Structure formats: structure tokens, C-alpha cells
Amino acid sequence: MNEESDEAYYVFSENPQLREAYELALGKFLVAFNAIENNTSRLVWRALHAKGLASLADLLAKQRFGLRLDTLKALIADIDRLDYLDVESLKRLSEERNHLAHGHFSVDPYSGEHQIEGQKRSTAANRKALDSLNEWTQEAVRLAHTLSEAEMSFWFDYEGEIPERP
């Protein structure tokens, strides 16, 4: 084997403890990111309702995540109470989510080094894949809570019952 094929040859199943740690970390990240997606939808829906744009709320809150983030960015520019939200961090985490969902966790059977390969990224930065994944999970949890709090801030705008999302 040449050096290039040796480097590309990683065996995932050689280390079941590492595989299980990755599966657990990936699951936690995906659960946290799902909360971000749901909370973004709720916030977009609630903010558009508050602006009197109920017909747009139903449409835009159901778009793909990138479009919801674009809508959220526009709302931030128009609604002062949302100006602390960090759309760029949400976009970056979305890219990481896509990388993780379509990448491959691999382990070098000789050194034990691990990385996430795929999607134009197979770099030394990915060699600490589990550490990075745990950091992204913590950030996702923080952002999910921030989005939820932002959505709840609109509850105080209603007199009587708070409208429910369809």
C-alpha cells in the first residue's frame, strides 16, 4: 500500500468504545440541533404574528432551515428585542450539522486517531472529532435556550389567550 491509501484506510469497528462514544455524542448534538430548528420555527412564527403577518407566519415558519434563518435575520433588523440573537452562529452550527450527518467517523486502527471525513473536510482540525462534537452540542443547547426565551418574550404582547402554532 502506498502512503496515501494507508492514510485513507480507517476501520470504524476496531474500537467499539470509541464508536459508542461517538454515537452518543452525535445523538446528543442532533437532539440539541433539532431543538434549534423547532425553536427557530416557533420564534419566526411568533414574531411574524406579532407584526400582524399571520399569513406569512404559517408559510415562512415551515421553510427549510436556511430560509428560516434568513427570515429571522430580517426580523432581527426590524424588531429591537431580537437584536441579541446570533444568526451567524446558527448558520455555522447548521453547517456542522450537515457535515456530521453526511460525514463519516473514522478511526486509524494503528494510532487510534479519529476524525470526521467527507464534505470537502478531512483535515487535522477534525482529528479531535469527539471534543469538537461535545463543544458544538453545548453551543447548540445554549442557542436553543436563547431562541426559546426570545419566542417567549412575545407572549407578553397578547391580551387574553396566546395563539398556538398550527
Rank of each mutant, 00 (worst) to 15 (best):
E151N: 06
K28F: 08
F105A: 04
R68P: 04
G66S: 12
A124M: 05
H104G: 00
Q119V: 11
E20K: 14
S5F: 13
E135K: 14
F105Y: 14
S106W: 07
L56V: 01
G66W: 02
E20G: 03
A140K: 00
H102G: 08
M1L: 12
I79Y: 08
R165Y: 12
L85F: 12
A25W: 00
E96I: 12
A35T: 05
N2H: 05
A61H: 04
E23V: 12
L93M: 05
L72R: 01
P16W: 10
K120Y: 12
V87P: 01
E151Q: 08
E37N: 03
R64A: 06
G27T: 08
A77E: 03
A150I: 05
Q119H: 13
A125C: 01
E20N: 09
E113H: 10
I162Q: 12
Q138H: 09
S89W: 14
A150L: 11
L18E: 14
L18C: 14
T123F: 07
L18W: 08
S89V: 02
S148V: 00
S13P: 03
S5K: 14
E113Q: 04
E7D: 15
L43Q: 05
S55M: 04
I36K: 01
G27H: 12
G52R: 02
S5Y: 11
K128T: 08
D131Q: 10
L93W: 03
A61F: 00
R19C: 15
L24K: 15
A21Y: 06
I162S: 01
E96C: 01
Q119F: 13
P16V: 08
F33H: 12
A50M: 03
S111N: 06
L43I: 09
L43T: 00
R46D: 03
A21W: 10
